[in-house]
Nucleic acid binder design. Structure first.
Lengths: 215, 215
DNA sequence: CGCTAGATTGACTGCGGTCAATATGAGTGG
DNA sequence: CCACTCATATTGACCGCAGTCAATCTAGCG
């Protein structure tokens, strides 16, 4: 494992692409019980877990370039589910193909390790938000996070980012009730921090939002 | 990457052991800014993150056999910190040694991927607890979790498990206040679910506790 | 032009936070 | 062995953020 402090080149994954398929908003990214790894080409999704009694905790937003299904393949299914929040385009891989080293360049497993480390870091930050931030800070953080994820994959257009997240999704991301989430979003909007409309969010002032998120 | 649904053999890591060192309770496992990977041989620790304003979120309990520092090495420092909760014995590794494949058997990187997957799964469950469970369920879950972690590494003795967790640690694990954590623990104890004393916990009825945790 | 999912609001409740003492207990020096 | 100290555990009083219940509103859609 060489120094991975910088993002490794993921382009080679393209060679592995086995099949492309489109799915509509609301669909599951991974068919039940099929060990399959998928890369997002277009669209946005969420990853979530369920408590036995049905409570839902959203644990990650999924943007183009993200790999889905690693945990299921390596650790057995049942842990997390994926749901598309917009129409999506996916590439599927055979899990067996992912571990062969490449003759030249970093081997695939090394790349996977790097991706998983990033995922661990994100999850760690998400947990800190849910556990430590109050409703105002949490909502502000969520909007910031969505903005930064979109920015990282070039989805900002005319200073607005995609925001296909229903208030129930935001609520389940932060462990808040739907009603309180609604009122909090309203309050922050009235403060002029951001404006959500038509599935996109426009941020007035990044620094102000960052401050509101206690970041 | 072969089928890793079953736990891979980690014994070979022993060959890598570079140095052993003991640290007291309260010490940091990883010296600041030193890229170093460490395996726990004895003792219990916690991993946590800090918000800029000092709020602390505990995100994992660290038991013998756990590897610490992967995220820092691969992703740069600053994300998570480790603190010993008991006196500990650690083995240190040179990160550079961890990626060389072994001639016979699973290569080390594959093992790392498996370990990280397990960590992701744990973190995912932790997040669901913090986000979705109320104080009663959360405390019950925490005790259950500590019990199961201890059980997995053979630390149960005379039907009690180590419990070196100050109430402030439990509070920061679940995103609750210290006072409310105290009162909730008291309530559950009075219900006869468990009993904490002398750094250990004794569980009356696993099924009852599981029920209380909404698990 | 109903239908339906998501967004809003208002009224009320209560879980969990905050503040402020007090208690307990292990460790230390005299 | 006792006084002292610091950390942790415990309690009580009070408050407010967030949850619950229940309507109503809005917009996309067949």
């Amino acid at each position: 494992m060489e120094n991975l402090s910088r993002k490794p080149d993921l382009a080679y994954l393209a060679e592995l692409s086995q099949s492309q398929r489109a799915i509509p908003a609301g669909a599951a990214l991974l068919p039940e019980s099929t060990p399959l790894i998928v890369r997002v080409e277009r669209g946005i999704a969420m990853r979530y877990t369920l408590l036995e009694d049905g409570r839902r905790q959203v644990e990650a937003l999924v943007y183009p370039g993200d790999l889905c299904g690693l945990t299921s393949v390596l650790y057995g299914p049942g842990a997390s589910y994926y749901e598309a929040l917009t129409p999506m385009m996916l590439s599927s891989f055979d899990p067996a193909d992912l571990h062969q080293p490449l003759p030249d360049g970093p081997d695939r497993t090394t790349t996977l390790v790097w991706l998983m480390t990033r995922e661990l870091t994100r999850l760690s930050g998400w947990l800190a938000s849910v556990g430590q931030r109050n409703a105002n800070e949490g909502i502000a953080w969520f909007v910031m996070h969505a903005w930064e994820r979109a920015e990282a994959v070039g989805l900002i257009e005319k200073d607005s980012a995609p925001f296909p997240f229903a208030q129930q999704v935001v609520a389940d991301s932060l462990g808040l009730s739907l009603v309180h989430t609604n009122k909090t979003i309203r309050r922050l909007r009235d403060q002029g921090l951001f404006r959500i409309a038509g599935g996109r969010v426009r941020i007035s002032s990044l620094p102000a939002l960052r401050r509101a998120a206690a970041l």
